[in-house]
Write a protein that binds this DNA or RNA. Structure first.
Lengths: 176, 176
DNA sequence: TGCTCCATGTAACACGTTACATGATTGC
DNA sequence: GCAATCATGTAACGTGTTACATGGAGCA
């Protein structure tokens, strides 16, 4: 599983506490990997036991239990190993397409309201991604390698939302 | 969970045994919902207990344990209920984008071989989908509602593979 | 004082994966 | 007779989800 690797990447970007990671998994990294705080704490415990990360009481901990984790060389090595490993590329499960297939086999179902909502959702996401692009990459020239890659990730989101919106229109026609 | 609904749809398309379902989940319906035979048998058992489906010894069972399941009215009702229910639309987890993000934060990683393989994979899938389209929908006129919807599902796959291929090219440029 | 947010955890359960077991049928 | 395939299942384990518990900090 890649939960641990998602956490290693987040911690390389910025050493953090479990709670801070949980918040980031609802935002940036959450765009392609989601996690609940329970999964995060469980995995942080395992990774610390494995020597991949190290946690220390945070500077601003006061009397709280707040601990900040950072990646150790073994964790960096594990991330490099995993990245080079050939992947499986299973198709993700998609409940909406399943519903469309249900509508194909059950004539009495009218999926048009759902399809409309689906299109609206992806239009909203597209707008969100485009706003991030404008904010983070106003200039296209002179980006560092890191920024070029970050921007490519964002472009993937944008491209896919456009696909979804166009497809939703095709679908709505088929549902008439 | 939608595992049970995926099975109901498959059984509406064609009453089947668990083994036949397992095979179909490696093909057609497997394009957007995968399952192992253990999940399938477990779920068939539950659905029969719930009165959604009914299993009977197959005509061609001989002395084997082969049982063919069909959907009961309660199962049809459940499928209709689920289809109309508002969905969550969580973003799917995507290990490859995670690897790209790892490459952004670890300069020493060269992800170009992986990115090349990724592009090749999606080119192969695109070819596969296009072959199915040619085979199943040679004529665009006069399709039934059911066929129009089936074709729309296929178009989604095609559209997405094109997206992936184009994106992989963007990514390869960013990785230079 | 009470409310909200920060921060970490336990417990129980559902879901998913892998390995293994069993036995009938089909074709060589 | 043997191997491959059809067909169904158990067991063990790991992952993911939900509910609940605990306590500090900041603020009105």
């Amino acid at each position: 599983m890649s939960m641990s690797h998602a956490l290693l990447i987040s911690l390389l970007e910025k050493p953090s506490s479990g709670f801070e990671l949980a918040r980031r998994f609802e935002r940036s990294i959450g765009y392609f990997w989601h996690a609940t705080h329970q999964q995060i704490y469980r995995e942080l415990g395992r990774m610390e036991a494995a020597g991949w990360i190290e946690g220390q009481a945070a500077d601003d901990a006061g009397r709280t239990r707040k601990r900040v984790y950072q990646v150790l060389p073994a964790g960096r090595g594990e991330l490099a190993r995993w990245t080079a490993e050939p992947a499986e590329h299973l198709l993700p499960r998609d409940a909406f397409t399943l519903k469309v297939r249900a509508a194909a086999v059950m004539e009495e179902l009218d999926l048009r309201p759902e399809a409309q909502a689906y299109m609206a959702l992806h239009q909203a996401r597209l707008a969100e991604y485009q706003a991030i692009e404008q904010r983070d990459f106003p200039e296209l020239e002179g980006l560092s390698r890191r920024d070029r890659i970050q921007r490519a990730i964002l472009q993937r989101g944008i491209r896919f939302e456009v696909c979804e919106i166009e497809w939703a229109q095709t679908l709505l026609q088929a549902l008439e």
